[in-house]
Amino acid sequence: MESFVHPFAEGLSLLAHLLGGSYGLAVVAIAVAVRLVLLPLTLRLAEQGWHRQQRMRALQPLLDALRERHAKDPLAYARAAQALQKQHGITSGLGGGLLVSAVQAPLGIGIYAAIRQSVAAAGSFLWIPRLARPDFLLALAVAALTYAAITLNPAMPAQMKTALQMLPVLVSFLMVWHLAAGLGLYWAGSSSVNVLQAALLRRRVGTRGIDAL
């Protein structure tokens, strides 16, 4: 594990040196850079998911009819629904999501471990006195970014946003509040790109009909 983390730690230290010795700024820069590199792929997958959602919505009356027809045979309904979706070119879309996870997982593990090692001796950043300790205001900032990303996301029906958006907001707040601020900064940088992605997706698909979903 040490040999895997070492290059990430060295890269973080080098970037911090180039940024005037600021580990906090280096962490944010790495988080934003990683997400921006993946943004074209994640944005395309999000757009495909939105269009898949619209096609599923258009098929809902047919799916309801199939459910009524096969009310006593759930397996038959599942097969009929799958055939109907295939007929209309609707796929699960899991392949792209798995690809993004496969790319992000090792990067995230390496960077998180490197940050955990580096911030032990790191100093302050902005209002944060010590990057090795949790910070309440940073947790609030990450929660606000999470809320903004969910609010801007056109793929979530308007009537469900209030109910569903509070859980990830609360989880992100509690997680960051109990993490070292250095790790929280990585989360904040990544969340800021989530907001950008949601805004770009909203612009791509247009606002027509979004609020009526």
Rank of each mutant, 00 (worst) to 15 (best):
M1K: 12
E2P: 07
H6I: 11
A9S: 15
G11F: 09
S13G: 06
L15V: 13
G21H: 13
Y23A: 07
A31W: 09
A33V: 00
R35E: 05
V37I: 05
L38E: 00
P40S: 04
L41Q: 01
Q48N: 09
Q54A: 13
A58P: 10
P61Y: 05
L62Q: 13
L62T: 08
L62C: 00
L63Q: 15
E68K: 10
E68L: 12
P74W: 14
L75V: 03
A76H: 06
Y77C: 00
A78H: 11
Q82D: 12
A83K: 00
L84Y: 01
Q85V: 01
H88R: 06
H88M: 01
I90R: 08
S92W: 04
G95E: 05
G95W: 02
G96A: 10
Q104F: 13
G108M: 14
G108K: 00
I111N: 09
Y112G: 15
Y112S: 08
A113V: 05
A113H: 15
A113S: 12
A113G: 07
A114Y: 02
A114Q: 02
Q117M: 08
A120G: 04
A121M: 03
A121T: 11
G123T: 09
S124V: 05
I128E: 04
P129C: 05
R130W: 05
R130S: 12
L131F: 10
L131V: 02
P134A: 04
L138P: 11
L140T: 13
L140E: 04
A143Q: 08
A144P: 06
A148T: 07
A149G: 12
T151A: 13
L152Y: 06
P154I: 02
M156C: 00
Q159I: 04
M160T: 03
M160G: 04
K161Q: 08
T162V: 01
P168I: 02
S172N: 10
L174M: 08
M175C: 06
V176I: 03
H178D: 09
A181W: 07
W187F: 14
A188M: 13
S191E: 12
N194Y: 11
V195K: 08
L196P: 09
L196R: 05
L196T: 02
A199Y: 13
A199V: 02
A199K: 12
R202E: 03
V205P: 08
G209Y: 03
D211I: 00
D211Q: 09
